[in-house]
Nucleic acid binder design. Structure first.
Lengths: 218, 218
DNA sequence: ATAATTTCCGAACATTAGTGCGGATGCAAT
DNA sequence: ATTGCATCCGCACTAATGTTCGGAAATTAT
């Protein structure tokens, strides 16, 4: 195996830096100017050498068809833990209309702020989204201003779970522990020092299940 | 925010797959044939839309100058978010001796349960550790049984921050908001409905600063 | 229905970008 | 020196690639 010339190493590391910066490989002319070479053919020539030596692979006749040899194939995760991207859909405040992804736009979350959470602590639940809590209206559920609540879409929950529920007659929305008791539904705050309230089950609409709460005060 | 059309989503996922396979972005014509579009201008048009919506960024006039928005910069590490491994040192309960890593064993965390948290939401703080809360003794700090508190070693904190403090005379340890007021130190729970308490500053020892709280009820 | 908007088409056009080729230049072996 | 080989130059050429524009078609709003 022939050793790489200085120029070849220079080109190689330029390619590396370029990809690092742009997320796509350089053109022959990018390399030319980047390495202070006076002719594209020189680049072409050395690229062939590098290909021969196996330092990089190349889709010929294709612009930017370069791939560093040492590079991981594909984008499959080489390191890093499994994460779930959770869209931050908005804020939640007492009584405000509760933000919630509509079915048809569920897959259309582009542009939304995404929060990466480790799968290990979120679980692999689907249909997750996050809301930022504004105000102290959830204080009785041990949730305060600035907290991030991770929610999962659900139309029903098991007794005892915390959920975002809407009292139709009040048109208010809060987070409470949910207990269905036949025709009546009892909602009790997480703080046991607070009083529970009971409503007609038909007056209570479950919107989402609360998966987790994240409070950061760094 | 305008929703993405079907075609735009189609293009978006094609780009994603293409990069996955080639390690460099597709050309307009790659997208054209890949998505069964009859004109390059349609691709160009939708690429502009996608750029407007922020779904991808684009180096215009540059071949293959595409970059997916969600993508981490730098292809070297294709995916995987930065995470910080936080050791779960034990549990905290009212009055119990507060677990805390000793300096000489700090680096010896082998066998400890580690919790990976995204750096983005934890910050890059060093000397972090986690404790699981047992019992409802922290209820007045909006922290309940089963919660995970992320802490940072600290011997002092700024006023208003939440910290694990030990009342020497009581030999109790709790989480409270901390306010140094000269010779006296006021500790007040996060729940404003609760009363604050004041102690001689010399009787209060700061153990750790609370960085974050994680409550999971999946 | 009618108008407005969005999306698509086709076909040119203008760069950008990869390749080829004759001829230097530099260096080492003969 | 002369030869051989690896590099490098310039330049031209062709293919690849992004852009533009008038108008049609589809969709949505009025």
């Amino acid at each position: 195996m022939k050793a790489l010339s200085e120029r070849q190493q220079q080109i190689l590391s330029f390619i590396e830096e370029f990809i690092e910066e742009h997320d796509y490989p350089p053109t022959v002319r990018d390399i030319q100017s980047g390495c202070g070479i006076s002719s594209t053919s020189v680049v072409s020539y050395n690229l062939d050498r590098l290909k021969d030596s196996g330092a990089l692979s190349r889709d010929s006749e294709v612009s930017r068809g370069l791939k560093l040899a040492g590079q991981k194939s594909g984008t499959a995760a080489p390191v890093g833990i499994d994460t779930v991207a959770v869209p931050l859909l908005g804020t939640i405040a007492a009584g405000s209309p509760f933000p919630m992804p509509e079915n048809d736009t569920w897959s259309d979350l582009t542009g939304q702020e995404l929060i990466d959470l480790p799968q290990a602590i979120v679980g692999l639940g689907d249909n997750l989204y996050a809301l930022k809590v504004r105000g102290e209206s959830m204080i009785d559920a041990l949730i305060s201003d600035g907290d991030l609540v991770i929610m999962e879409q659900a139309s029903s929950v098991r007794n005892g779970q915390m959920a975002a529920v809407r009292i139709k007659s009040d048109n208010t929305t809060t987070l409470k522990h949910f207990y269905a008791e036949g025709p009546r539904t009892r909602l009790e705050p997480a703080n046991s020092q607070m009083e529970a309230m009971t409503f007609n089950s038909s007056d209570v609409e479950v919107i989402s299940r609360v998966i987790a709460v994240w409070r950061y005060m760094g």
